[in-house]
Amino acid sequence: MQDILNIFVKSIFVDNMVFAYFLGMCSFLAVSKSVKTATGLGIAVTLVLTITLPVNYLLNKYVLSAGALKWLGAGFANVDLSFLSFIIFIAVIAAIVQIVEMIVEKYSPSLYNSLGIYLPLIAVNCAILGGSLFMQQKEFADVGLATTYALGSGLGWFLAIISLAAIREKLAYSHVPAPLRGIGITFIITGLMGIAFMSFMGISW
């Protein structure tokens, strides 16, 4: 239980996908002009991350990593497919995004109207693939911890994008020097938010 809580809090605040690792920056910067669209994308990222990461975790544990195929028989104990992990992870992500899109479209057209346009964007969102790669590096003990990590990372990303969107909405009323307008000032604000988030680093128990 303590492990779960620890990973959850750490992945939202300390190991924040955006501020600590710069993952998912492209869509983060492009879709953070208003809180409404940012919320949509944030939910979509959290959802897809929470679905793809456990799937990739199981694939990694039982198919890809060195000796993972032991359950097929002793002859497979030395098979190491980890060189395929990038391609498998990205294929799983692309496929799941496609499936989620189809399901949402079929069963909840209203949700599809608000979320649908973001889903295709997500297949190439580095936060999703990054989540799977960090999961592989961190070697979580079981699928529950991996899912917790996915949910926490997604929420951390969500939190980051709505905070930035809120700041950018207010920023529209400020007088920013012409060369910095738009992307320049957004970089700097994200940097300052990152410094603020670093104060969470002391969290531990």
Partner: peptide
């Protein structure tokens, strides 16, 4: 620290 990369990028854009 990571945030400084973003601030530098902002300055380059500037």
């Amino acid at each position: 620290l990571p945030p400084m990369a973003l601030i530098l990028l902002g300055v380059i854009v500037w």
